[in-house]
């Protein structure tokens, strides 16, 4: 379970995350929805211990990320693509990631096959497309067979086949009682994948709850989303 509570992040004088609270429960896919620049990545970066919060807490299984030992065995994450250095091979990248968390080397070919990169494991990452990079990032997230998945815009660059595969894969993960937090600016993607929705706009949570609650009274999730975020724009002006 992921619990984010009263999170605040400032960059200089600009507040990019404003008193953000939400919960991503086990056994459900939680969609983290918002336009680009709404504060999704900033929130996830704090959740993953990459950036520090100015106030508030972000806990995974009751602990801050930085307190986890061998965190990849608990939390798999995808942020900014794979992050693999371009001069390394896909296998080389996953091998050091596995070594850093005491994950057996045998997982490397397993996850490469799982994400459909089994044939290019020995190729250098410098020659990878955006979609291949995303797949490699997913492979790294799955190395430790983690209880919790945190994925930032995972469908970026995936072909329709890959998107469909990922949707079914994440649904299956949640069905086995695991926690999946998935951010996207694409409503259509989350409409078909998420159980719960957390909508963020201008750094603030404008709605959170089961997907049905968000869409009640609107023709579609898209209508609901624009109704929620437009209201926010009017407040600003």
């Amino acid at each position: 379970m992921i619990e984010v509570s009263r999170l605040v992040k400032r960059h200089g004088t600009k507040v990019v995350v404003r008193d953000v609270s939400f919960t991503a429960r086990a056994g459900r896919v939680t969609g983290f929805l918002g336009p680009n620049g709404a504060g999704k990545s900033s929130t996830l970066r704090i959740l993953l211990g990459l950036d520090s919060a100015d106030a508030g807490t972000a806990l995974i299984g009751g602990k801050p990320y930085r307190a986890l030992r061998n965190p990849l065995r608990t939390v798999g994450s995808l942020l900014e693509g794979s992050g693999a250095h371009r001069s390394r091979t896909a296998r080389g990248h996953l091998s050091w990631v596995a070594a850093s968390n005491g994950i057996p080397r045998s997982r490397v070919p397993e996850v490469l096959d799982l994400v459909g990169l089994g044939d290019v494991g020995r190729k250098r990452v410098g020659g990878f497309s955006l979609g291949m990079n995303q797949r490699l990032g997913l492979a790294a997230a799955l190395l430790g067979d983690p209880e919790v998945l945190v994925l930032d815009e995972p469908v970026n660059g995936l072909d329709p086949h890959g998107i469909r595969w990922l949707r079914e894969f994440l649904r299956a993960r949640a069905a086995t009682g695991r926690t999946v937090l998935l951010s996207s600016h694409l409503m259509s993607e989350l409409a078909s994948t998420a159980d719960d929705l957390v909508v963020i706009h201008h750094g603030e949570i404008v709605h959170s709850g089961p997907k049905g609650d968000v869409t009640t009274g609107h023709a579609s999730l898209e209508d609901a989303f624009f109704a929620l975020t437009d209201r926010e724009d009017r407040w600003d002006s």
Binding site: L50, Y65, P71, E80, S82, V97, N101, F128, G157
Partner: peptide
């Protein structure tokens, strides 16, 4: 070192620090 923007612009430090936050 950031990868090219058109392949996601990722940096290895993200993989490194999520693996080892200490």
């Amino acid at each position: 070192t950031a990868n090219d923007g058109d392949v996601g612009g990722g940096r290895q430090i993200v993989a490194t620090l999520t693996g080892v936050p200490r």
